[in-house]
Amino acid sequence: MLANKSMFSQTVDQVNVQERVARLFSRSIKKESKVAALNNILSMIDLTTLEGKDSPGKVRQLCYKAAHLHNQFPDLPKVAAVCVFPPMVPVAKKALRRTGIKVASVATAFPSGMSTLAAKLEEVKAVVGAGADEVDMVISRGAFLRGEYDRVGEEIAKVKETCCEVHLKVILETGELVTLDNVRIASILAMNSGADFIKTSTGKVFPAATPPVVLIMLEAIRDFYLQTGKKIGMKPAGGISKAKLAVQYLVMVRETLGQDWLCSELFRFGASSLANDVLMQITKQFTGVYQSTNYFSLD
């Protein structure tokens, strides 16, 4: 499985990664290029609610918001998907009918992944059966950190098998992987095992998506593509609440993966409050002033 020497033995130097990130993040994005980026970001958002206290009512509100981001600007794009817990899949599915917005569900004992493989597969089967368009699974970090890469890979492959055509996003939970070397290994492991997307975090562990981690994952995606011709998607999630940071991530995607990844089929933001900040920035680009947050719906 681990076929190519240069790809898998490649190490990561943290200091230089931070330097590269700083360089990318210093790009100055203004005027039309900023508006274009903000619009693109909206279309890449997986609007997310993953709380123990989630209710069908809250999910329905979120779904309505997903399709009607800000009525002041009717031409705004819709978000890419709504991401919920398994029991909420039918609710979201119904609420999003005919909107073109996808339903994503977390599965495999999210967020810890601490369950038996059988139970995980059962859960995946259930959400796929309920009509989820995308499944966000978590890897077994314990097994990964013990060095049982085969086991982690096998689990991902089995989940993918259960998903069939449904898109599989593999959450690495990079906050628990400790080193950037591990992030790279886990990324390649996930892609080799059938991931359609790789995703940084559950949002339940600190730190969630960090710029160095995202850069390493994007570089792994690029290397995997150059090796296999397969385009794998990327989803940073957790801790991205400001439009400016999202634009900076878009710069990172542009200069690492290029044109093909600048779309919601291959790049997503997992976020709950990002959309409103982007909307506020878009409004500011048109009106020249910042509005109060009260003008943007909280759902």
Binding site: I29, R254, G258
Partner: peptide, 13 residues
């Protein structure tokens, strides 16, 4: 890789 992207940066002099 295709780095000739539709999204280009405006001049920022």
């Amino acid at each position: 890789m295709n780095y000739k992207t539709d999204w280009v940066y405006n001049p920022a002099p």
